[in-house]
């Protein structure tokens, strides 16, 4: 990141100043604090670190967090596809409203989503009261966590798929149809393979958001150690007990998991040759 280069000398002013400020602000706010996480972890002995990240309660939280996130992301792939397909291909009354509703989980503060979902799915809630007699416990159970993660992950799949579906050339579908393929065959052999990179990106974005999610989950989770305690909450608990080293070690595991997912997402986008406007 040195001087501007290129054949033609750039005539615009302000490179030094703006680049200097960008790097300074980026370092102060993002890079130095993030480095603290790595430095602090490096200060622990290998054994200490391993004990902190592999104790049974922590492992149980990984299993719950990653398991529920995986299920939620898969649910979102299926329903997200239906929603994106419907919004792109069909016109129906109220479509604009439905379209705007998709962004709700992005716009709603996570604590609001959390208490909203808990209210609805608790024993006396609008939906919970019908599930309770069937023996389905949602709030304060892993199912509730999964539903919260479906909630916050859905827009990632829909908003990533929509541009891919609207860019879909009809030629391929017409060729398939004129060669005698049924609509179902065309769907599986032409449409799905074409939008697969977007689908995978949406899946990975939804999964990545879910493993780090906190606000929308803590209210509905019940937070019982070994049972309904997600990893993010465990980090908070460790901090509350002044076990900064333990919290840092688990946080490093979570951060590395997010980075791996980020690499996977970049890999898919690179492979597909375009950058999907992954919504935030």
């Amino acid at each position: 990141m040195a001087k501007p280069q290129g054949i033609k000398r750039n005539v615009l002013p302000g490179f030094g100043l703006t680049m200097g400020y960008t790097l300074l602000y980026l370092s102060l706010i993002v890079l130095v604090p993030l480095a603290a996480l790595f430095v602090k972890s490096a200060g622990m002995s290998g054994e200490q670190f391993w004990k902190a990240v592999s104790n049974p309660r922590v492992v149980a939280s990984y299993r719950l967090t990653f398991g529920a996130s995986l299920i939620a992301a898969l649910v979102n792939v299926v329903f997200g596809f239906v929603v994106a397909w419907t919004l792109v291909r069909y016109r129906f009354p109220g479509r604009k409203l439905v379209d705007a509703l998709v962004d709700l989980p992005f716009a709603l503060p996570t604590a609001v989503s959390g208490i909203a979902l808990t209210t609805v799915y608790s024993k006396h809630g609008w939906i919970g009261r019908y599930l309770e007699p069937l023996g389905i416990k949602v709030a304060f159970a892993p199912l509730g966590i999964t539903i919260a993660l479906v909630f916050i992950g859905l827009p990632f799949v829909v908003r990533t798929l929509e541009p891919a579906l609207s860019d879909l050339e009809r030629d391929g579908e017409e060729a398939a149809a004129s060669l005698g393929a049924s609509r179902w065959q065309t769907f599986w052999r032409v449409i799905v393979p074409t939008v697969l990179p977007a689908l995978l990106t949406g899946f990975a974005l939804s999964f990545a958001r879910a493993i780090g999610e906190y606000g929308s989950v803590v209210f509905i989770a019940g937070n019982m150690p070994m049972k309904t305690e997600i990893t993010s909450l465990l980090i908070v608990e460790k901090l509350g007990q002044h076990d900064v080293a333990g919290a840092t070690a688990i946080a490093l595991v979570m951060l590395l998991a997010s980075f791996v997912l980020l690499l996977v997402i970049n890999g898919i986008q690179h492979y597909a040759g375009r950058r999907y406007q992954g919504a935030v």
Partner: peptide
């Protein structure tokens, strides 16, 4: 507005806070 080496790395670094979970974001401070 300028060409320089490491541009895509810089863009990735700017996006970094989105990849960090809320709890970890607080913890680093």
């Amino acid at each position: 507005k300028f060409q320089f080496r490491g541009k895509s790395l810089l863009i990735t670094l700017i996006d970094l806070p989105f990849a960090v979970s809320p709890i970890v974001s607080g913890l680093i401070y």
